[in-house]
């Protein structure tokens, strides 16, 4: 529960996906993204025009790639203008009116999700918003609705976690014994259960359980103290040294012969 509104979530059962790309098509249509040259929606991987993609795991197996909607999102934390923000339902959204295009969110996301409209003269950061516009009118996200194989379940995160653990418990041979997204980088709204390792979805290496924002918050917490310390130290030194020089001058005026400081 966040602010009285339930944290939404999406459970992705990787074992059920056969990589048909219907979700990608639906996503592309729903978000009015550019189709490719041939009028289709499928381009390999995420881009400024693809909010989701089907990634092929190195072990085999199709894995839906999309924004995780982290509970403590790195992109939200680093944004200097609040263009990335979390909605009351716990969806990470983007406000183009505030964005200045520094792309810090893209640097910070451990999954490489936010993408940029590199070809545009006024480019925006693009990523999945979990079809918030549909959620508000009581519909399911477009991808969930389009999936022919019920790979995804949309609902309240708590309930989905329970469902995920139930599935793991009832078919232990079918899944790896981990709910990806339960604790990763502080947990995310999107949860995966899978028969293949999902580490390959992370940039370089999977984030630990520590929420990434903590890394810079440790530093930022020290900033006010640092400012105060430097400021008062410098002011103090300025004053003390000034006083001592005044006294020195006065002493020299009194005894002009006494040239140096007392040894």
């Amino acid at each position: 529960m966040i602010g009285g509104v339930k944290q939404v979530g999406l459970l992705i059962d990787v074992t059920r996906c056969n990589g048909c790309n219907q979700c990608v098509e639906a996503c592309t249509t729903e978000n009015r993204l550019k189709k490719d040259d041939t009028g289709g929606a499928v381009i390999k991987g995420l881009s400024g025009q693809r909010f989701s993609a089907i990634a092929l795991s190195p072990e085999g197996g199709f894995v839906r790639q999309m924004c995780r909607h982290c509970l403590q999102a790195a992109c939200v934390s680093v944004c200097p203008v609040g263009a990335m923000y979390r909605s009351p339902e716990g969806v990470v959204l983007y406000d183009a009116q505030k964005c200045m295009g520094c792309r810090y969110c893209m640097m910070a996301c451990p999954y490489g999700i936010p993408r940029y409209e590199w070809d545009a003269a006024a480019p925006l950061v693009r990523k999945c918003g979990l079809c918030t516009q549909r959620l508000q009118s009581g519909q399911l996200p477009a991808c969930v609705e389009a999936c022919p194989n019920q790979v995804m379940v949309f609902g309240e995160r708590e309930a989905l976690l329970e469902e995920a653990h139930n599935r793991l418990a009832s078919q232990p041979d079918r899944y790896l014994p981990v709910v990806t997204g339960e604790h990763d980088a502080g947990g995310s709204a999107v949860l995966y259960i899978s028969h293949v390792s999902l580490d390959f979805l992370s940039l370089n290496r999977p984030p630990g359980a520590q929420p990434l924002p903590e890394l810079s918050h440790n530093w930022l917490g020290k900033v006010p103290g640092l400012a105060l310390t430097t400021g008062s130290l410098m002011t103090g030194l300025f004053w003390v040294i000034g006083r001592r020089m005044q006294f020195e001058e006065a002493r020299l005026r009194k005894n002009p012969q006494d040239s140096g400081r007392p040894e």
Binding site: P80, V81, A83, K98, C99, M100, G101, C102, R103, Y116, A122, P123, L124, V125
Partner: peptide
Amino acid sequence: LGLPWHIYMP
């Protein structure tokens, strides 16, 4: 900056 005219946003 992608949108330099938003430079004052912070």
